[in-house]
Computed example of a mutant assay.
Amino acid sequence: MNTIDPSFYLSNQKITREPSPTLDKDGFLKILMTQLQNQDPTDPMDDNAMVEQMATLTSLEQVMNMSSAIETLVQSQVVSPVIQYSHMIGKEVMYQQSDDQAESEKNTVKGNVVAVSQKEGLAIFELDNGEKIYADAVTKIGHSSIEANGTE
């Protein structure tokens, strides 16, 4: 004889509902429709209350659309370090030579920025003296001697 698995009965099913901390447009419409379907026919919902709820729904939808548009705008505003520092090409920069010397013994070196690249999200200046330095290593920025003299 075959027996039916008791888990197939609806009364044995676990019903778990996780409440949402936010109310979206669809949830708001479900609540409004439930109110309309279950209202007392002899005492229907006030017209003003209905208009008020519809206005709230429209406002909610507009706020959600605006939030989505702002989020898209913010994501598109992430600027590459190459673009952010491209204005430095042709500028003379000064930086401390990086070696194992004590802080007081380091030499200040000058170089003209000829290119900007990036590594792991950080800007790197490629200089005319062949060195590559991180943008945050620059201690001073000036006009290139090439720009000042008008010659290369």
Rank of each mutant, 00 (worst) to 15 (best):
Q39T: 12
V93Y: 00
T58R: 14
N48I: 11
I15L: 14
A137N: 12
F28P: 00
N48M: 15
D26V: 08
K106A: 07
L10Y: 05
D46A: 12
V113L: 01
Q118D: 10
N65P: 00
L32F: 15
Y134W: 15
I124T: 08
L36G: 09
E103S: 12
T58F: 08
P44K: 05
I70N: 11
S86V: 02
V79I: 15
V109F: 01
E131Y: 03
M94T: 06
T72P: 07
L32N: 10
Q13I: 13
K140H: 07
G90F: 03
T16N: 13
S20M: 13
A123P: 01
S104T: 08
E61S: 13
Q101H: 15
I31Q: 13
N65K: 14
K132C: 07
I70V: 15
L122I: 07
K132F: 12
K25E: 14
T139P: 09
T34S: 15
V74G: 06
G27F: 04
Q101T: 15
D128E: 06
E92H: 00
S104K: 11
P44S: 08
A123R: 00
Q13F: 05
T58E: 13
M64I: 11
Q75D: 09
M88S: 03
T56K: 14
S7A: 13
Y9V: 00
Y85E: 05
S80G: 04
S11M: 03
A49V: 13
N112K: 01
S68Q: 07
A102V: 10
S145Y: 08
K132Q: 11
T34Q: 14
Q37K: 15
A137E: 13
Y95P: 02
K14V: 10
D100Q: 13
M64H: 09
V116G: 06
D43E: 14
G111A: 09
T56W: 03
M88D: 04
R17G: 06
A148Y: 01
L32A: 14
S86F: 05
E152A: 10
E120I: 01
Q101N: 13
E147D: 09
V93R: 02
T151D: 07
T72C: 05
P81R: 04
A148G: 01
S59P: 04
V51S: 15
L57C: 06
N112H: 06
D136E: 12
Q77E: 09
V114N: 08
F125Y: 06
D24S: 11
M94Y: 12
S144R: 01
T56I: 06
A49M: 14
L73M: 09
K30D: 04
S117W: 03
E103K: 14
K106W: 05
F125N: 00
S11V: 11
S145I: 02
G111W: 07
E126N: 09
K119Q: 12
P41Q: 11
K25T: 15
I141Y: 00
S86N: 11
G90E: 05
I133S: 03
